[in-house]
Write a protein that binds this DNA or RNA. Sequence first.
DNA 1: AGGTATTGAATGAATGGTCATTCATTTTTG
DNA 2: CAAAAATGAATGACCATTCATTCAATACCT
Lengths: 194, 194
Amino acid sequence: MAKRTGEKYDAIINAAVRVIAQYGYHQAQVSKIAREANVADGTIYLYFENKDDVLVSLFNEKMGAFISDVEKALSNVPSPVNQLRELIRLHFEYLQADAQLAIVTQIELRQSKPAVRKEIGLILKRYLGVIDRVIQDGIKDGLFREDIDVRTARRMIFGTMDETVTSWIMKDCKYSLTDQVEPMLDLFLNGLSK
Amino acid sequence: MAKRTGEKYDAIINAAVRVIAQYGYHQAQVSKIAREANVADGTIYLYFENKDDVLVSLFNEKMGAFISDVEKALSNVPSPVNQLRELIRLHFEYLQADAQLAIVTQIELRQSKPAVRKEIGLILKRYLGVIDRVIQDGIKDGLFREDIDVRTARRMIFGTMDETVTSWIMKDCKYSLTDQVEPMLDLFLNGLSK
DNA sequence: AGGTATTGAATGAATGGTCATTCATTTTTG
DNA sequence: CAAAAATGAATGACCATTCATTCAATACCT
């Protein structure tokens, strides 16, 4: 039965991030991940059910930690406007700090099988909930318009950040993501119109 | 040498859309696509280089037609505000009218190999150019703020539409996409702030 | 202490299933 | 009756997964 914990568990997950980031999803064979983790092919099956389980666990460990960080950080920020700023900032800072992880979660894991993507979607729901709460607080506090639809606004915030990170990666991460925080926040708050 | 035209060429592309939409990218074998097109497996290789070429051609034919429609439609619309409305409307209308195509371009083809995704990216560039032009016109006409960054705004517009279509598909297309046009346009133009 | 049994972690070569692609043959067309 | 188009069975490459075996550590005995 898969162990799901321990030193080698972490080693395999981190090896998977490096291998997938370097070779891409389709060239990340189990044997390559095993070699990178300094472990035999068969050992992976002592810690994980199968290859898909490695991918889901990877996303769960890394994204789970990120969401917890965001939740904790936002709880110390009073104004919803600053919460939104902090959310965007953390989103960009986290991925900018670990470009390999960014490539894996943003590009490569999206090529996985439906079953894997479904699990990933469930984990992401928690993050979407965090965004929703910021918007709702903003409306309650009278800072945001009460006639906006929370889901529409959430899709705008998440969709824009997601697209921004993806194109940053596609352009080889060669500009600063965090420089985008203020212009993006300004667009979200004030819109295109004069 | 691949023919890239003719009755069977279209039949194969349309069969690919149906098979991929129904079975998913990973269960869309060449033999299944051939059967759906009423053609032998080998015939596919008379019209296409290989399986990847089928996928790229599919995107090129379908998305190319869509972009041309959008370009033509916008050229008859005077105000950039109305151009933006029309762009969002066409984007949603086109995908709502053909849910199978929406599933394939929005979800399934994103699981393809890097080489295929790269081609898809090139085709999409033309569409992003259309969005950029609407924003630039809006600034020139004094309707949009001149201090916004065109690329940031473009990523907001494309990212938000993309995320909206994806979650519409994930929720089994069971609400109206086109109902989202006005609330989304309003958010783009006026933002979240009161 | 010295020796021996027991456990379970780790190994990596072998297996088996899956498909894209090919090409010798057949069918259709002009 | 050529020439072109279409066929579909056979091929071979690829890779996740398995499992018989090795190895190391710990417990148990005299």
